[in-house]
Design a protein around this nucleic acid. Structure first.
Lengths: 145, 145
DNA sequence: TCAATTTGCATGCACTTGCATAGAAACCAG
DNA sequence: CTGGTTTCTATGCAAGTGCATGCAAATTGA
């Protein structure tokens, strides 16, 4: 095997470590405010953005990169909390539509007030907009293919 | 709350998504080679680097950013597989020393041949060394504090 | 048109992680 | 010293995740 170059290895290590650290900090902010985790937020936000606050599980899955079975059970829990509602998909009985409830919208907003502040604190305060743009561009290269 | 700027939000989203995607690709490489996960590798590598192949759990924890209870149980499993050995810490009966075994070293090497190749493929092929350096520098800023 | 395949979602089971806390040893302040 | 505190590791229990597979509905193709 051709050894990866030191700068590549370093970048990879930093990517993992940084993600873990920043996610940890942000999750801690949410938790200490008594709010659920980022996964819940991701789903709520996607739904809110979807047409009429609705998406199919497959669409959510693609947007947030969860496994099908994990999303299925996450939706169970969120439905149990009254944050989303599953309704039948007209014309295809295999599929379903997930719709965000008013309660779900309210939670998304409450979460954003904490989450947004955490993003400011743990990212916004550390990078200029220009640097953030550079970072996004570099990360995009890794997503290719 | 002061809304985070769009470029900050975008960078944050990319960070999570990229990490998730690349980790997923690399884990898939390991799995399809019948090898254990990155967490195991991280522990093996830290130990191998430690003096005499030894570290305390706390040292490993700090290096790899695992939770104490998760590391404790991961070490149980690794010890069960004969990759690692726990030995008493002289002079402090609360503590312990974890030592990598020959089998552990062998596994670390087998994993690296797959892992290193995956890093090349999923990162090395997508970034120049110069870009990797820029990425590391930007991520380092996020780790500060 | 209908058998075979694919698609969408759910679920049993084992494994892993999070949380709280236990228990033992070491440390520290008076 | 010694009683209270801190440090280090382990663990019971609940929650979350991965894997394989199930079932039902839709789609495909000979």
């Amino acid at each position: 095997m051709q050894e990866p170059s030191p700068s590549i290895i370093r970048a990879w290590g930093r990517l993992i470590r940084t993600e873990r650290t920043v996610v940890g900090r942000i999750e801690a902010s949410l938790k200490s405010a008594g709010l659920p985790s980022l996964h819940w937020y991701d789903v709520l936000l996607e739904l809110k953005r979807g047409p009429g606050g609705r998406l199919t599980p497959r669409e959510i899955e693609a947007a947030v990169l969860f496994e099908q079975y994990n999303l299925s059970r996450l939706l169970d829990r969120m439905e149990g909390e009254g944050l989303v509602r599953r309704i039948p998909y007209p014309g295809d009985k295999r599929r379903q539509i997930v719709e965000i409830t008013d309660e779900g919208r309210a939670l998304q907003e409450r979460m954003w007030s904490v989450y947004g502040a955490a993003i400011n604190r743990f990212i916004g305060d550390k990078l200029t907009d220009r640097e953030a743009g550079q970072l996004s561009a570099l990360l995009l290269k890794l997503l290719q293919e």
